[in-house]
């Protein structure tokens, strides 16, 4: 298995994702865990998030990103799980697990993968606030219409 993206409405177990990428030839596993925070970037109190995804396209984008990470950093196995649906503060929203022979490749590919996913994967997040309001939030690094 070279790359795996799982979009799921069920809770994510980071250890289970690590088990998917580990192998006897891998001396390093780097895992990024993204967790729902209780405060928005502009300081509003957040009670929950709703995620939605265009799953078929997200899977294709992830396959491209994983290919780029391997071309840049070297041989590794990458798995990503992303939640959809309603999440509470403290819930795991996304996990990236990368296994490689040595740690540099695992660290670099893990960082590249989560940054590229946030920029490019067709996944959306709505913040729900303690004051009753809500808003769709775009990532600061998100690619915009018309950008190449």
């Amino acid at each position: 298995m070279a790359a795996l993206l799982r979009v799921t409405a069920e809770p994510i177990d980071p250890r289970a994702l690590e088990a998917l990428v580990r192998g006897d030839d891998c001396g390093a596993v780097a895992t990024f865990i993204g967790v729902v925070r209780d405060c928005s970037d502009d300081g509003r109190s957040v009670t929950r998030l709703s995620y939605e995804a265009y799953e078929t396209m997200a899977r294709e984008e992830f396959a491209r990103i994983a290919g780029e990470a391997k071309a840049r950093f070297g041989t590794c196995t990458i798995a990503v799980a992303h939640r959809v649906g309603d999440l509470r503060v403290g819930d795991v929203a996304v996990v990236v697990a990368v296994a490689s022979r040595h740690r540099d490749v695992a660290f670099d590919a893990c960082r590249y993968t989560i940054d590229a996913l946030k920029q490019r994967a067709p996944i959306w997040k709505k913040e729900h606030y303690a004051d009753g309001g809500s808003d769709w939030r775009e990532n600061r690094c998100a690619e915009q219409a018309g950008a190449s």
Binding site: H82, A121, W124, K125, E138, N139
Partner: peptide
């Protein structure tokens, strides 16, 4: 056709 607003995953 899919309409894709600016993304916010992760």
């Amino acid at each position: 056709i899919a309409l894709l607003p600016p993304v916010g995953g992760g």
